[in-house]
Amino acid sequence: MEDHLAEILSTHTGRRSELIPILQEAQEKFGYLSDDVIAEVAEFTHVPESTVFGVASFYTQFRFVPQGRNLISVCRGTACHVRGAPMILDEVSRQLSIEDGGTTPDLEYTLETVACIGCCALAPCLTVNGKVEAKLNPKKVKDLLAKEKANEV
């Protein structure tokens, strides 16, 4: 891990304004921001660890726990909401037995909600590892997840 972080840091000079881009690159690389990463970024940018954590935790993009191998993002945009997104979220949550923001104990799935995927005409929708599944209803969600789980094995 240290090598990778050093590689990221080597493209920056340590200015305060680079803090967020550095954290973004680190998360891109490791999937989340561990305590070690935060400590090292703090040293590099000459700001206290608490400040780095304060900045990172302010923004929704940053995660502090590892993410599942598969990421399911349910859109909670307005268009999706009025077309039934809460039912979709409930169904995913029921099928995977995790809440919004949770990860399955086997680290297979992480469930999150996102502000807007940006394909409102396809509402309600979600993405599985970035691939959009459109015009859903609870039944389609159930089938989709059954298929996903079958693919896993």
Binding site: I20, P21, L23, Q24, F58, Y59, T60, Q61, F62, A115
Partner: peptide
């Protein structure tokens, strides 16, 4: 280009 990290 600065990428916002998600805060309304």
């Amino acid at each position: 280009i600065f990428q916002g990290a998600g805060a309304f």
